[in-house]
Design a protein around this nucleic acid. Structure first.
Lengths: 333, 333
DNA sequence: CTGTTAGCGCTTTCAT
DNA sequence: ATGAAAGCGCTAACAG
């Protein structure tokens, strides 16, 4: 028993008794085709279960209805959320999404971007790890492209969260509570978002109020948070601004073991508002980065380039401060 | 300034002074081409920055080097892990991955599977929500396909975790600790994995030992766990087997608020071992589902069908019991 | 070993 | 309004 091959446009044409062109036109809703004929064609197509081959269409039309997203790490909750927002927005516009996980590998990131671009209509670079120079060099070859959470680019739309504003909100919250001696747990020191946090902190310190912030380089994951617990305690600070929620949670966990009462003895803030930030004990006060919206915005920027009707401004979303149980007035106050 | 169009195979042929076929052969490593010529061709290609169009190749070769994964919910940590494992394994074999989020919509799931199949070489159905009949009906049209975490299928490889074995491990752990009165917090009652849990529980009860298990229908997320806290307490059970980690965490959170000491007053187990299960307080005892490995296995099963060399057995991975702080000997013991 | 030719399945001028 | 024919960019017989 030979398995029936997928019907081609020729089969439909034969069955409907018309030419290929007519089938093509009818299937694409071209108004120049006689309504009656169009109906006949559609009936024939339905009878055969015919659907035009997307691959063949891609070749002739020069577009694939697919975009690529390259992500540094599929394990990161924030990237997962961005992917989700992007994927759903793209699907709503009838586009498909190719995901590529660069696994934090610089060369892979570069190669994946170029490779996936060939089979798609554009690529979204999610928080690219490559250097500014490399990025600027590769971007033209990827066009249309969209960059997420990286500094401004000439010629490529950028969407991102305002980490400086988020940090400012955290600082305001903490100082309003009465904290003056803080620790900032830095992540990857060459990261752009780290610089943004630093800038906000520097500005706050400069503004006086007797604010002091000591910086300790930790890392970006849970374990780096636990690892610096003792150093944090040694500073005598009353509150700590963790690089992100993961670091904050790690620290929180280590402090719990040391029987340190958070927030009474020490306040802790995170960043991102990953799904589980609300479920730690105490729940984490954090700056919520609208990652799903960021993904959706990235799609909007891509779609605009693909259809060339709307403008594509550089979009910046502001994180929202979410006050939960991990912050309170300082012990000494 | 006209932007240079992407060079085609013709440009390379011209520059190298050979025919199209020779370029094609050289670029594909065909050994029948003179080494010197091949080198010249490669040089020309490099000079022009030429790469064969994947779309054109897909059309003529009949394969896209891409597979589709349809997932019920990109927000679910387990599916994220499966996607990660799958994506990385596929990438290692030079394949690309198209993701489609059906958002728990039955019709979408069906439509997405069919639509993405047209632009890929196969589709992986992740814990499909559609009925057994529908699944059996659509699967032939998707071939080659792989089904993850669903009952056995005729003609389609299935990979999945053994939820019954996982539940058995939890039961053994709890009974060994001395628990006799348990509560099982059920999730979606028509889910296949729920039935597996039920079967394991029924068998354990049947085996005697005076084990009693009361079933309470909760749900699959954090909130459903918090919602049933009082009902759980009212049963007087000494341990609860939650449908999954999310439910367990929700329950844990509600109990913490009620000042119930876990595990001293009540032991709790989860299922899945999602990333944050280790970070609750107390950390969750759970049956770890090897989701990343499941994704990798799904790829292996797909790759085998694509290359038709290896066999594709039905693969079942056994969860691992991870004993953490949320379980202990019963209070009364 | 290399070049010529015929498609892969579709869309789109260009005629009619 | 419809059909015939020319490709989209590449690979794979088929000659030589």
């Amino acid at each position: 028993m030979a398995r029936a091959a997928r019907p081609g446009i020729t089969d439909v044409a034969k069955l409907a008794g018309v030419s290929l062109s007519t089938v093509s036109r009818a299937m694409n809703g071209n108004p120049t085709v006689d309504p009656a004929l169009a109906e006949r064609v559609r009936a024939a197509a339905a009878q055969l279960g015919y659907t035009a081959s997307p691959v063949a269409r891609s070749l002739v039309l020069g577009r694939t209805q697919t975009v690529a997203v390259v992500i540094p790490d599929l394990e990161n909750p924030t990237f997962q959320a961005i992917l989700r927002g992007l994927s759903r927005a793209a699907a709503a516009d009838g586009y498909h999404v190719l995901v590529a996980d660069s696994r934090e590998d610089l060369d892979e990131e570069h190669a994946l971007a170029r490779a996936t671009r060939l089979r798609t209509d554009g690529v979204i670079l999610c928080a690219p790890r490559m250097s500014e120079d490399e990025l600027a060099e590769v971007l033209p070859a990827l066009s249309p492209a969209v960059v997420v959470n990286r500094g401004p680019q000439t010629g490529t739309p950028v969407v991102g969260a305002d980490y400086e504003a988020g940090t400012r909100q955290i600082l305001d919250h903490l100082t309003a509570l009465g904290h003056r001696r803080l620790v900032y747990l830095a992540g990857a020191t060459r990261s752009v978002t780290h610089r943004a946090r630093q800038a906000a902190i520097a500005a706050a310190v400069r503004d006086g109020d007797g604010l002091e912030v000591e910086e300790i380089t930790a890392g970006v994951d849970f374990d780096s948070g636990t690892a610096v617990a003792d150093r944090v305690l040694a500073t005598g600070a009353t509150a700590v601004i963790a690089y992100n929620d993961l670091v904050a949670m790690g620290l929180l966990s280590a402090l719990t073991i040391r029987l340190i009462d958070v927030p009474r003895q020490l306040s802790i803030t995170g960043f991102d508002d990953i799904p589980f930030a609300a479920y730690t004990s105490p729940p984490l006060t954090t700056a919520a980065v609208p990652a799903v919206e960021l993904g959706a915005a990235a799609w909007t920027a891509m779609h605009a380039q693909l259809t060339a009707d709307e403008p594509t401004p550089m979009l910046t979303l502001t994180p929202t401060l979410v006050v939960r149980g991990s912050t309170a007035i300082p012990h000494s106050a």
